[in-house]
Design a protein around this nucleic acid. Structure first.
Lengths: 347, 347
DNA sequence: TATTTCTACGCAAACGTTCCCGATAACGAT
DNA sequence: ATCGTTATCGGGAACGTTTGCGTAGAAATA
């Protein structure tokens, strides 16, 4: 199917004017008589003329569009973040182009290359859990393509980054468990080289240390697919429960990890919080409906998306090369419910 | 920031060839000597040449991108559908441009106009709950812009449509409640003029009729914001509970409506299913974790997205105008859990 | 009246490609 | 020696805009 659009040339032909005159009239240039302007504007309106954005892009060498690279859309955190991204982009006149890495490094490289081959003015990325090498970003970035990382960032690339305070979020969650009397706190999280995993593990360790609980790496499990693969989670849990010194609490890092852990615990017939207390990073909006109601660390996903987009657009629209980069850290929210409660276990 | 890309011209200059020769060499034309081809290919590889997609778009008058218009991304159904859309689009070499109407008719018109002004080869749309007038789609469609509707469709526009079998899904859910002994079945759903609302209401009525239960419009409530506004849902529920003949079961139509109803019921201290049994349309993946575990009608969101995208791309790539349109109906899945169980109430 | 200054418009290049049409050379055939 | 082929390449238009520059005529100035 073809979509035959009306061009500036058509207007010129119809009105006996040159394209330049029409163009100028449309932009309201002072060198066009008001009479001609009126004529052009009226005719353009009549035939519902819309400038061809592609021709403009070619001329101005920009697209007014930004690319998003995330592992998956169907995830509470990311869909909320994308919502934030879209809200800002829309107001600033940018289109948002979506793509998913599905936690695959290879696919990420393909996507990024595809997006960046100049069909996009900038990139908003949260790296895949498989990604350990960042040269595909580095190459483009060095060539001048603006990139802002959010959530899962590439520390070795010097640019704007927007993250939640994962350290503090993890610290608070862990300390909350400790203060509720739990001593053997397990931690299931995503791939170890992910920035978020590192930061959350750091907070977890710091809380243990503060309360003089020895860190035990047998209590920490990494799920390389971020909870996308059920068995990975179930295996981690069964290993934990086979320990001589079983955990009495679980702190999960990641939206998918948390919900999948809850499903696995249900399947394994573990009572929460009697058998094991649970608190985890997740942005689900039905935490209170879950049985028992789920204690969570909630990330300001929408705001992260917004801030990242603002930074990216400022980079895109900056005349001079940007040299002053910042890492914005937004606070998480600790929502305590029943799944991490000591009271429940004492009944 | 500027992103200085290498063009076909640069290659020509460096190698002492014309742009046409370079272009042909790159495409492997038979009229270029293998020696020249080798030279060009090697050099292009070396300097990492990527064709400028914008220039191509201008030339070929297409973009290899499709626009998505939905009410919101952060919604289980839509994020899963978008996942399906992206999966097909990626394989077929199309970019996916996202936008949200936020259930606003006005915003929808602006978005559609913006997207369609030729920055997109086709549109995948699920209309907003406010939309009753479809001329903004009709105009573009008549001009030749391919459009495929999914989920919430515009019946008056003759094109491909992909929907879940909302009638049957609603029928099954309602009949399930009836067979479990419930007699006063309330129905809370989205805006009445939405195709999905109509279809689901139809299934609901048909099930009632089959089992000789009189339809009572006092048991039906429409939420014009599709559950996005909490109070709208709570109001509907309190009205239901103020009825002389209170409902004993609730069938909800819509992802957001269902989860928000659950939240409101919790806040109103209603026991499920003792005070009121619940089953609803939703694509949440934590239905079994909810207390009580939630009976749901699940839509094949991912597949709906896939099928819609395939149809759209077939329209885009069709040489001749498409005249044979189909409405694909995919089956829903009834997942019975505790929230709609009679047994629970008899304990 | 001759010259300058506006006013209002057109020409053409440019953005990066593709592709139709020629152009040039080599070469065998006549 | 001339011609038609074939192989290989370049010129230039086109896609839809914007914009620097040029220039016509009219008005203003000298």
């Amino acid at each position: 199917m073809k979509f035959e659009p009306v061009t500036i040339k058509d207007i010129g032909k119809a009105l006996g004017l040159s394209t330049s005159t029409v163009s100028r009239a449309l932009r309201g240039s002072y060198e066009i008589s008001s009479e001609t302007k009126r004529l052009v504007l009226e005719y353009a309106e009549k035939i519902n003329y819309r400038p061809n954005p592609i021709a403009l892009s070619l001329k101005e060498r920009r697209n007014h569009s930004i690319g998003i690279v995330v592992c998956e859309i169907a995830n509470n955190f990311f869909s909320q973040a994308i919502n934030g991204i879209e809200s800002i982009a829309y107001n600033r006149g940018y289109h948002v182009i979506m793509s998913q890495s599905h936690e695959s490094y290879e696919r990420e490289t393909v996507i990024v290359d595809h997006l960046a081959s100049r069909s996009v003015d900038g990139l908003l990325v949260s790296v895949s859990s498989e990604t350990q090498d960042y040269t595909h970003f580095k190459n483009l970035y060095d060539k001048g393509l603006p990139i802002v990382f959010f959530d899962r960032v590439a520390n070795e690339i010097i640019t704007h980054k927007v993250i939640a305070d994962n350290f503090k979020g993890a610290f608070d969650a862990t300390e909350h468990l400790i203060e509720n009397g739990f001593k053997r706190i397990a931690h299931i999280t995503s791939a170890p080289y992910l920035s978020i995993s590192e930061e959350r593990l750091g907070g977890y360790k710091a809380a243990l240390e503060k309360h003089d609980i020895e860190f035990d790496d047998k209590l920490v499990h990494y799920c390389y697919h971020g909870g996308m693969i059920y068995d990975e989670i179930e295996n981690a849990l069964t290993k934990l429960f086979k320990l001589k010194l079983k955990p009495d609490a679980l702190f999960t890092g990641g939206d998918r990890v948390t919900t999948t852990c809850m499903q696995a615990l249900k399947k394994l017939n573990k009572k929460i919080p009697e058998d094991i207390a649970v608190i985890g990073f997740t942005n689900t909006n039905v935490g209170e409906l879950i049985s028992p109601s789920l204690s969570v660390v909630r990330q300001p996903a929408f705001e992260i998306g917004q801030v990242a987009t603002e930074l990216l657009i400022s980079m895109i629209e900056s005349k001079r090369p940007v040299t002053d980069f910042e890492t914005k850290t937004l606070q998480t929210e600790l929502i305590v419910r029943d799944s991490s409660s000591r009271n429940m276990t004492e009944k």
